[in-house]
Amino acid sequence: MKNSLHKIIVILVFGLLINTSCTKDDFCLQNPVTPKLVLRFYDDTNKETLKSVSTLYVWAEGKDTIANFNGTSLDSIYIPLNSLDTKTVYKFSNGTDVDTFTITYTPKEKYVSRSCGYKVTFNDVTFYSDNTWIKEFTPSTLTTLDSQNIAHVQIFH
Rank of each mutant, 00 (worst) to 15 (best):
L84V: 13
C22H: 08
K108S: 08
S21R: 07
T23L: 05
T96M: 05
Y57F: 14
L50W: 02
R114I: 12
S52L: 11
W59E: 02
L81Q: 08
V89S: 09
E48Y: 09
D64T: 11
C28R: 10
S76V: 04
G117D: 08
G62D: 07
V89T: 14
L84W: 09
N123V: 06
Y42C: 14
Y118E: 10
N70W: 12
V125S: 08
T100P: 01
D130R: 00
R40S: 15
G95C: 05
Y57G: 00
K63A: 14
Y105Q: 09
V112F: 04
T45N: 14
D124W: 02
T65H: 05
T104H: 01
Y57Q: 07
T132V: 12
G117N: 07
R114P: 05
T88F: 10
N94H: 00
K87A: 15
N31S: 13
N94S: 00
T100I: 03
D97K: 00
F101N: 01
T34H: 04
L74K: 01
D26W: 07
D97C: 01
V58K: 00
A67Y: 10
S113V: 12
D25F: 06
Y105I: 05
Y128E: 03
D75K: 03
S93I: 00
I79P: 04
R114E: 13
S54R: 06
D25G: 10
T132F: 00
Y111M: 06
R40L: 05
V38Y: 07
I103L: 10
